[in-house]
Amino acid sequence: MFSQVRNLIILTLLFSCGTASESTNEKSETPVDKNEPAQPISDSEKIILFFGNSITAGYQLDMDQAFPALIQEKIDSLGINYKTINAGLSGETSAGGKNRIEWVLRTTPDIFFLELGANDGLRGLPLDQTIQSLQDIIDAVKKENPEVKIIIAGMMVPPNLGEDYTNQFKNIFSDLAQKNEAVYIPFLLEGVAGIPELNLRDGIHPTPEGHEIVAETVWSYLSPLL
């Protein structure tokens, strides 16, 4: 309980400046250029598709420092036949993800990691729209692969948006996970949010060291599915 209250207080301070910085990501944009052919994937390789915003993309970091790449390192070290694809895009909202998912699904995932919604909450967008967009994304993934395993990353918004909105927003992710029989991570940035040395100067996005902690959190939920 203390850690949750601490995180909410910290997030209030961190996100008071909004999300404008996400639109000026200097290094990590969408990881796959739509003008270039997708990298070839072996028929025997299973795919983990990380679909999210700037946290997944590794804002202002090299791609190999973002947590999806660190997950790939773990997989390779264990000799597991999975390939990770980082489909993170800085500034992405759930509606933007819904519009983008059809193109991303040119590669069919065996495991789908969904990390979207935080930018909706920080902008105070209607929660029913966020819920519908996230469900539409999940439905599109399931249509492409009915056997897909889904992981949903939970996020929080600062309490200055109102207690009702804050609580309802937090419940979006657990409710979606339950409805879709998905694995649920309560808070993706646990152990990272609000710790200055683990975040960039904006106080929002993890440093390489922060991404290492995020990777450990993700791995604890992902590894049983491999």
Rank of each mutant, 00 (worst) to 15 (best):
H211A: 04
V141W: 04
I138A: 10
V183E: 06
E144A: 14
L161I: 05
A193D: 04
P208L: 04
P159G: 00
S133C: 10
D202R: 07
I172V: 05
E209H: 07
V148T: 08
Y221F: 14
S174N: 12
F187C: 08
E212S: 07
G203P: 08
E147N: 14
G162I: 06
K143S: 08
N167T: 14
T130L: 14
I151Y: 00
G191V: 02
I150E: 01
P146W: 13
Q168W: 06
A215F: 06
G210R: 09
S133R: 03
W219V: 05
D175V: 12
D136V: 01
T207Q: 03
G203H: 05
T166G: 03
V148K: 01
A193T: 02
G194N: 11
K149W: 06
I150A: 03
Y184A: 14
E144K: 14
L198V: 02
E216W: 02
E212T: 05
E163P: 00
S133M: 00
L188I: 09
E209R: 07
N199W: 04
I137T: 04
L200G: 05
E216R: 13
E163R: 12
T207G: 00
L176W: 10
W219P: 02
G194E: 10
P196F: 14
G154L: 14
I204F: 12
Y221C: 05
E190G: 05
M155I: 15
N167C: 06
G191C: 01
